[in-house]
Design a protein around this nucleic acid. Structure first.
Lengths: 341, 341
DNA sequence: AAAAACTACGAAAACGGTTTCGTGTTAATA
DNA sequence: TATTAACACGAAACCGTTTTCGTAGTTTTT
């Protein structure tokens, strides 16, 4: 087992000082050609690589970015992580992924841990419980310490930082309009409890679209489901009672379940009922029939978040007035077989 | 912006030495009750937290584990990451995720970067290109430096380290047997090129099952597809030529595509053709009809890999003879509507 | 030949901790 | 009262770098 070699080893072996070695390896003008060549050759031979931790300590820069998300087994978050990783990696940053598992406590613990020097900045999407509790002190503390933070998708107005989201309200409006334009009038909405920022905005878009087209809102057509552990019976019960010709869902899992129930009831998609979901993930693509979806462009969102974060990290802005920006991506409709034209 | 407070600040403020502060905060017996209380109170007041980087440098332990996977937008890998993250987090470790994107070079670069002190050990699954090139020098270098490594799913015999896999061959055997037992005789296999270790093993199981049940292997019933960028036309062409009553697929994407083509051809699943896929992911669950699948238990696999790695990391085994172990998980058949009983 | 200017390098501080060892003060023992 | 032990703390080394500053030794300038 050959241990990693350090500057000290090289210095001792070549009978020069550590500083000389350090400078030689950086090709400093201070060091003579001969000495530099000797040291560089030796370093190469023994495959010297500087220790990242020591450099981090010295520079107070880790080149790590912390990503805190509610769940990774969720196609949208996965794509965002991919976008972040790709961009960050290209810039020489590593990505530390932490899962809050939709729990406030885990979110807090993970952030506190990472905030003690492990990362240069955070990219995160709020856990369900955090949005429910509406407590963002852990985020505020982090920003007060001068650690850059970028929020995406599930955000809050309570915290001053860069943000990147899609235009949820307009997206939902557009989706609903699409259904209305194809002649649908009894349009259901399957959503979560509205403390999730995205659901709230999507619901607003849905309502606005209906009202703008003189369709009264029928509250009984709005089904609120818990975000996790979906109970298909609740969906069945819903469709037993209501009579709809279109369904808008705030995520693709709800849509898939909805489609299954509707099909089980003998209705045809899209002839009898149209479906549109949010998040254009694998399920939408491979559903039967294919699910028309509002694409959230997770990978792009991740790349933008990473770019915003790294920009903030790399400007040594020592007390320059902070200016934050919210980037809004346009959700786009991907038409498949679950809607008619 | 309140900067992070250090031992030095506390020491200066309280007019004691840094060592005293350090000891007091660790509740050392060396320090008097009075002094300890004073220091601890001050530290608490100013929310002192030790700097992770400094501790890492001192201890030569980062409490980070590096996870290098080909892709994260792949449900199986995602579940493994989740398993790793959950276990590691509970043990106080963070997870740095690197995507090789199926590229040999990115795999090498990422590992070299992390190996310079950023992590205590690696968990990884080989990229497609690495398995194709059959070049594992980057893995060997890492292990020679004494950095623990655990390989999962896509492994190689060339490297001596802990491994965790599923019994691919037996799993495929069992799946094929399931099809045979339900009376199927013309069983196709849709797989990747066989340099992927898992595909090779699954194909072996498929062959063995057929031969054991006196079904001759018909090579024309074996379709090899590129792993990425699936071309549905190739699948169409395949099913135009062959006449099958069952299909075994090495992953669920192949299965979903296969089912679509077969259904488009007017055949019924499972009456005319049965399907079984590997990886019991979301697609299998929500396919129409539901896809019978061999579950790979990604989350468990991740947890076990993390456990094996952390064990190795935490034994200070200074030159103790290394002993490696390969953990084999049993793939289990999840029966859904794409097969008959 | 003395002064000035380079050249090539080393010593030391710094990053933020941990830990070993030494020491002055007080209390207990002989 | 002299000796020893216990107590409470500080100095300094160390982890592996980077970087500033000082300085011998040599070369150039006047």
């Amino acid at each position: 087992m050959k241990r990693k070699i350090t500057l000290k080893h090289i210095a001792r072996e070549l009978e020069v000082s550590i500083s000389t070695v350090s400078k030689a390896l950086k090709n400093s003008e201070e060091i003579s050609r001969d000495t530099k060549e000797k040291i560089q050759a030796f370093a190469k031979l023994y495959n010297y690589k500087p220790n990242n931790i020591a450099i981090s300590l010295k520079n107070k820069r880790t080149k790590n970015i912390g990503v805190v998300i509610p769940d990774i087994v969720h196609h949208f978050f996965t794509t965002v992580v991919r976008g972040i990783e790709m961009f960050a990696n290209a810039k020489g940053y590593n990505v530390i992924v932490c899962l809050s598992d939709e729990s406030f406590d885990k979110e807090v613990i993970n952030m506190e841990l990472l905030a003690n020097g492990s990362i240069d900045g955070f990219i995160m999407s709020l856990s369900e419980e955090t949005q429910l509790k509406n407590d963002y002190n852990h985020l505020k503390e982090v920003t007060e310490q001068g650690i850059p933070l970028v929020l995406f998708d599930r955000i809050t107005d309570e915290v001053n930082c860069d943000k990147v989201i899609i235009n949820d309200e307009e997206g939902a409006y557009e989706a609903a309009k699409k259904l209305i334009d194809s002649g649908r009038k009894k349009i259901a909405l399957i959503t979560t409890e509205s403390y999730l920022s995205v659901s709230k905005n999507r619901m607003a878009g849905y309502r606005k679209a209906l009202l703008d087209h003189d369709i009264p809102i029928d509250e009984s057509l709005i089904l609120k489901l818990p975000y996790m552990n979906i109970d298909e019976d609740a969906i069945s019960a819903f469709f037993d009672v209501v009579n709809v010709d279109a369904v808008l869902c705030v995520n693709e899992i709800f849509a898939i379940h909805g489609m299954r129930v509707v099909q089980k009831n003998g209705l045809k998609i899209p002839e009898d009922v149209s479906f549109i979901g949010f998040t254009d993930g694998l399920l939408s693509k491979y559903a039967n029939p294919g699910l028309t979806a509002m694409a959230q462009h997770g990978e792009k969102m991740g790349a933008i978040a990473a770019e915003m974060l790294i920009n903030k990290v790399e400007i040594e802005n020592e007390e320059e007035e902070e200016t934050y920006h919210t980037e809004v991506l346009k959700a786009t409709l991907i038409e498949r077989e679950s809607t008619i034209n």
